[in-house]
Amino acid sequence: MNRDDMIAAVQAEMPERRWKHTLGVMETSVLLARRFGEDPERAELAAILHDVAKYWQTSRMEAIIREEGLPPDLLKYDKELWHAPVGAYVAEHNFGVTDSGVLDAIRYHTSGREDMTRMDKIVCLADYMEPGRDFPGVERIRELSGQHLEKALIAGFDSTITHLLAQGKRIYPLTIAARNDLLLKAREAEQ
């Protein structure tokens, strides 16, 4: 599928407001990829598809999680997490994406994971800080991203965890593992 057809298909899956977010993630992913030495085309591809399943019915996402062998523990956590691994499945099976790095960036853009690749970090961070985002701390994340991919991402995870705690929600273990892994590696790099 060519880029224009893919964009049209993804845009049809979401409301206009979310499409504007996706455009912001695309722009920010390309910018971060150039800044931190990643392939901008691969980063843009992951960004185009990162929210493809975001507005699917819960039952449709749940069926894919159950039937396609996606991590069943997802079903115990906030449904906001589900669209990322389902989106990676859709990117592969409906859009023909075979690049495992792109698929992983889609899969982990909401939760993170230990040993995140540079592509994982770029798409996750772009999703946090694209120009349309407006929440307490986003300017600090954007400022950090000018120099430090990992420090900006830690600030993003801190923001998510703080928000989830304030809402009384459970925190997905991969998010905590991702944050802890980034902190550990940042401290090791400083020594």
Rank of each mutant, 00 (worst) to 15 (best):
R113W: 07
L75Y: 06
P85F: 08
V90N: 08
H83Y: 01
F95G: 06
L74A: 07
R66Y: 13
G137Q: 03
L125P: 00
L75M: 13
K121W: 02
P136M: 12
L149G: 00
A126T: 03
L49T: 03
R142Y: 05
Y108V: 10
E80C: 09
M129A: 06
Y77E: 07
Y108E: 02
V90R: 00
V90S: 04
V138K: 01
E143H: 07
P72F: 05
A91V: 04
S100M: 14
H109C: 10
M129D: 01
A53T: 04
R107C: 10
A105Y: 01
A91M: 05
I141V: 15
I106E: 02
R107L: 11
E62V: 11
G156I: 01
N94W: 15
G96N: 12
T110R: 13
K76Y: 14
Y128N: 10
E92L: 06
R60T: 15
L70H: 12
K76Q: 15
R133L: 06
E130Y: 03
Y128C: 08
F95R: 03
M119D: 00
D120T: 01
I65T: 09
V123E: 00
R113H: 07
I64A: 12
M119R: 02
A105I: 01
L49M: 09
G137H: 02
S100N: 12
T110Y: 11
E150A: 13
G87N: 05
D127E: 06
G101H: 01
L75K: 11
E130I: 00
V138L: 05
E139C: 02
R60N: 13
L49V: 09
P71Y: 12
D73K: 11
P85K: 01
L144F: 10
E143T: 05
I64P: 12
G101P: 01
L74Q: 05
G137C: 07
G137W: 00
H93D: 09
D99E: 05
L144E: 10
K54Y: 14
R113T: 10
D78L: 10
Y77F: 15
D73W: 12
D78Y: 11
D127T: 02
T58A: 14
A63T: 15
M61F: 03
A88C: 06
H83M: 06
Q147P: 05
T117V: 06
G96T: 09
R66C: 09
E67G: 12
L70Q: 12
V123Q: 01
A105E: 04
V102I: 08
H50Q: 04
R133Q: 15
T110N: 08
H93Y: 14
D115G: 15
A126L: 00
A88S: 13
A105V: 03
K79F: 14
A84C: 13
R60Y: 14
I141K: 03
R60P: 09
R118M: 05
G101W: 04
D73S: 14
A152N: 02
G146F: 09
F95A: 08
M119C: 04
I64E: 14
A53C: 08
M61T: 05
E139W: 12
L103R: 03
T98L: 13
P136D: 14
H148N: 15
E68K: 15
L144H: 09
W56V: 06
I154Y: 00
K54I: 12
I122K: 00
A84R: 07
L49I: 03
H148Y: 14
R142G: 02
P85Q: 07
P131E: 09
A88E: 08
D127V: 01
C124Q: 14
R118A: 11
W82G: 03
M129T: 04
